[in-house]
Design a protein around this nucleic acid. Structure first.
Lengths: 229, 229
DNA sequence: TGCCCTATTATGTATATACTTATTTGTCGC
DNA sequence: GCGACAAATAAGTATATACATAATAGGGCA
């Protein structure tokens, strides 16, 4: 309407109307062309603004169906998952790394299923500890498809975490959070009591459809993973 | 180059080059105008594609500085945080809800600090249990600014979670994950053993700068929060 | 050498226009 | 009333153009 409606202004105005209940939940809002006319900007600008709101889950848009205010706004939180060493550094600590074990082994059924549905194949199993200021930060428990990381690649000084990021073309995967009690081995590595609750981050990584690696990161007790919305 | 380079095609081509190391990590890639010329499309189309890749953390873009392949690709995982009832329903269970307690109380220091830096003010404290197929799903432990939810609003049948989503204009906040042992009360509510590791989701919600609510969701043991990358 | 100012540059954004595509809505025939 | 088909519609995308903005690079000056 008044000078310079940028797409962020349009988004903010739309947000205002949603909040003020000028546009009721579930209700259809004016189409892009009308809004553009009303606000005195181009349709592309309105499109950009509304697309943005749709991405955050506040609006639902469908061709021909128009745009409506989401009935149950799904909040979308985005976490940044950096390389572990960097996470430690940006938290202001001195990163450390210790390889605990590395060798071929038959994975437990749950993990084998992710790799090959049929026969259980030996996989490379790497256990490593990440340290922050010489204190245990997290235990990396990783299973690797032998194709992706040949035995010649050593994880003695460079963590598998870091090697993979730099050498494997990532394509997809899953990420999950859970809480688990520390078993005897984990407790020893993380210098905590057995049974202490650990925040576990499980990641399954694929490249071009084939599973590459399955890692569980057992964070030391008290660890908090935070993000802003 | 050949027919119809849509922005998604441009994005895929860029992705291909990154993966093939045609564009090395840290290296600067051709600017939008050049790429547009090379691929035979408009600069706006290239812009859209590269902006998309930048949002996922694979590229870093700066005005005048150009675009370069991220040195340490920060994976950005996006979680959808639906209303709890919906999460239960989409998991194929029958949602249930039980209000455990609701009243004014002085919050612990850690929480009081989030609301008013100075004097500790009584806040509305709501404890409620969410059920899936009549089994405990998660315990909602919420502190509310009295302004945002007047005492007249009852959470007896409608969870605060749901009421807030539908009635409060959300503007910002933080989200954190941690693992914690179940205390006596939580164990009783969630029907688990004391000390069992619980996945805790902590959320602090603000509207126009002022803190609205601080909630901890204690999930029943075994809970897994998953997302696809 | 070191500092400030300016010109340059690549991205960011706005705009009008045109065409595409998914969906819905309405209509016709049964 | 019902089902198939056609018309209408609103978002999705592509494009050329123009201007804004941030940040670098380079030059002049002390």
């Amino acid at each position: 309407m008044q000078g310079m409606m940028g797409w962020q202004d349009v988004r903010d105005e739309a947000l205002r109307r949603i909040r003020a209940r000028a546009w009721q939940p579930g209700e259809r809002i004016p189409d892009e062309a009308d809004l553009a006319a009303e606000l005195g900007c181009a349709r592309a600008t309105v499109n950009r603004a509304l697309r943005d709101l749709a991405e955050t889950g506040l609006l639902e848009r469908r061709r021909k169906g128009g745009t409506r205010v989401a009935l149950n706004p799904v909040r979308k939180a985005t976490f940044e998952i950096p390389v572990i060493r960097l996470a430690i550094e940006t938290a202001g600590h001195r990163p450390g790394y210790r390889l605990l074990s590395d060798g071929l082994a038959l994975p437990p059924d749950a993990i084998a299923a992710d790799f090959a549905p049929g026969a259980p194949v030996p996989l490379r199993h790497v256990l490593a500890l990440h340290l922050a200021d010489d204190r245990p930060y997290c235990l990396e428990d990783r299973w690797l498809s032998p194709d992706s990381a040949p035995p010649s690649v050593s994880f003695a000084t460079l963590s598998a975490n870091e090697w993979l990021v730099q050498n494997i073309a990532f394509s997809g995967g899953t990420l999950a959070f859970r809480a688990a009690p520390a078993d005897a081995e984990q407790a020893r590595s993380l210098e905590c009591a057995q049974g202490d609750p650990l925040l576990v981050l499980e990641r399954m990584t694929q490249a071009s459809g084939a599973p590459i690696t399955r890692v569980s990161l057992y964070h030391a007790p008290g660890h908090r993973l935070e993000t802003t919305l």
